[in-house]
Design a protein around this nucleic acid. Structure first.
Lengths: 250, 250
DNA sequence: GCTACCTTTCACAAAAACCAGTAAGGTCGC
DNA sequence: GCGACCTTACTGGTTTTTGTGAAAGGTAGC
C-alpha cells in the first residue's frame, strides 16, 4: 500500500531496460559516444543504473535491434556508423529530387506507388484543403525505400478540381514529378507551410516502416499554396524518427 | 516452437493495450475524432482490436493519463479539447517573445533559469560551435512552464569569447532578451539553421517534462550565425511531443 | 598460455499483461 | 420510470515480460 505523493514523487514508468536504453541512445545520438567508440562495460553500466547484468543486456539488445551498436563477445559493445539522414525542405519537395539526392550519397533509393484513389482525407488534411466534412480528394500514396528498406510514407492529397482528368488520377508514376505537372496545369507552388510533430507510430506505420522498440515518427503536414493562396496539394510525410533529421533555414 | 519468417511476418512488439492506444491516439490527433466526439464503446473496441474488456480499458487509461479523453461512467469516453501549441521559428527565438505570445492566448507562461555554467557541451553542439573535443562553452539552461506545467527544456550555449565579461555569465534573467543583448555586443543574428528530430526521451527529460507513457520529444538544434557566418549561439530545445507542433514557411 | 576483462547465455522468482466472465452502477432516450 | 447501453471495477487463471544471480565462453595484452 504505497501512497504516491502528488507533485514530488514523479517517476518514469517505463521498464528499467527501456530507461537504460533511452539514456544510452541519447549519448549516442548526441555524439557523446561517437561511432567506433566503446560503450561502458556491462559491469560499469550495472553500477551506473543500479541494475542487474541481464537487465543491462536487455537494454543493449534494444540498441542492437536499432542497429545503433554491435557487440562482440569478449570484446566490447561499440557504436556503429549511424549518420542520420538530414533532409532540407527543398530536397523534400519531390520524390524524384529525393532519389537523385540519395544517389549522390551512394545509396539506392526508390519510391513505390502504393495506391491512387479518391478518398475522404483525415480531418487535418481536409481542413487544409478547405473541404466540407464529407468532401473527398485524390490521394496518391507512396512509400520511399532506401536500400530497399522502408524509410518514409508519403501521402499526397490533391483537390479533385485540379486532379480531374489529369495524369494525377492514373495509377502510375508521374514523369518529371508532380510539381512540374502541377506547374504545367497552371498551379505552380507559391508558398509552402510545413507543420511538424513527433508522434507515436500507429500499428500501420509501425509495420510499414519496420520500426523497432518504441521509435517515434516524425510527421510533416505540408500545405502547398498556388496562385491566390488556394491549396494545390497537401502532403503528409511520416518518417522513422531515428533515420531522419529535418533542416530548416531562415 | 514458432518459426518466424524473415520478411513476411513482421509484428508490432508493443503490448496490445499500447497498440490500441496508438491507433486511437492517431484518430484523435488527426482530427478523425474531433474534440467533444465520443470514442467507440468498449464493446465495439473489443471487437475492432480483438482484445478483452480489461485490455481496452487499459488502453483508454493511457489516453486519459495523457489528458486526451475523459470517461464518465455510464455515458461515453469523449475527446477533450487538446489543440496543440503551434510554434513558428520567429516566435521561438526568444523566451520573452514566447511569454508575450502565450499571454495573448490567455495562458500563463514563464521561464525559469535552471543553471548558468561553463560546461563541455554535447558533441553535436560542440561541432556547431567549432570547438575542440575538450572545449567549453557557456550554458544557460532554462525550463519553460505553461500554466505552471513544464513544457520545454531550453539549453543555450554561447562561445566563451562572446559571453566573457557580459551579463550572459550572470545567473539571472537577461532584460530584453538575449538576442537584444547579443546585438548590442555586435553579434546580431544573420542566419539561423534548425535541425529537428524526434527522440525517445531520456530519463532526465521524462521527469523534467512530466511525460506520460511513451510520449516522444521534439528536439530542435538551432545554430544562430552572426557576421561572417560564425556561430553566435547554439540552442537545444526539447519539447513534449504531444504538446507542440512546429511550423515553417518557405 | 595465462589472466583480466568483457559479452553472452541460462535458470528462476516476481510482476505484469492478457483473457474470459461477472457485476455494480451511471446515463440517456423513450 | 423503464430498459438499453454504457463505463468502471473485480475475480481467477494462464502466459509473457521484467528482473536477479551465477555460469559459460570469447578477446586481447602480456
Amino acid at each position: 500500500m504505497t501512497v504516491p505523493r502528488a507533485e514530488t514523487e514523479y517517476v518514469d514508468r517505463r521498464s528499467l531496460h527501456e530507461r537504460i536504453a533511452a539514456d544510452l541512445r541519447d549519448d549516442i545520438m548526441s555524439g557523446e559516444l561517437a561511432p567506433g567508440a566503446s560503450l561502458p562495460s556491462t559491469a560499469r553500466l550495472k553500477e551506473r543504473f543500479d541494475a542487474s547484468n541481464a537487465t543491462v543486456q536487455k537494454a543493449l539488445q534494444l540498441l542492437k535491434e536499432e542497429d545503433l551498436v554491435v557487440g562482440r563477445a569478449g570484446a566490447s559493445v561499440t557504436v556503429r556508423e549511424h549518420r542520420r539522414r538530414t533532409v532540407a525542405p527543398a530536397a523534400l519537395s519531390t520524390a524524384d529530387r529525393w532519389l537523385t539526392e540519395a544517389a549522390k550519397h551512394g545509396t539506392h533509393a526508390r519510391s513505390v506507388l502504393r495506391d491512387v484513389a479518391e478518398v475522404r482525407p483525415p480531418a487535418d488534411v481536409r481542413s487544409a484543403l478547405n473541404l466540407p466534412v464529407d468532401g473527398t480528394a485524390l490521394l496518391r500514396s507512396q512509400i520511399l525505400l532506401i536500400d530497399d528498406e522502408p524509410a518514409e510514407l508519403v501521402d499526397c492529397y490533391y483537390p479533385l478540381a485540379i486532379a480531374e482528368g489529369t495524369a494525377l488520377m492514373e495509377r502510375r508514376r508521374i514523369k518529371g514529378g508532380t510539381p512540374a505537372l502541377l506547374a504545367e496545369l497552371g498551379h505552380s507552388a507559391r508558398r509552402s507551410v510545413d507543420r511538424i510533430s513527433a508522434e507515436i507510430p500507429t500499428q500501420e506505420q509501425y509495420r510499414s516502416l519496420r520500426l523497432t522498440s518504441s521509435t517515434p515518427v516524425l510527421r510533416t503536414l505540408r500545405v502547398v499554396h498556388g496562385a491566390g493562396d488556394s491549396p494545390v496539394e497537401v502532403t503528409v510525410m511520416v518518417k522513422a524518427g531515428h533515420l531522419y533529421e529535418l533542416r530548416y533555414e531562415f
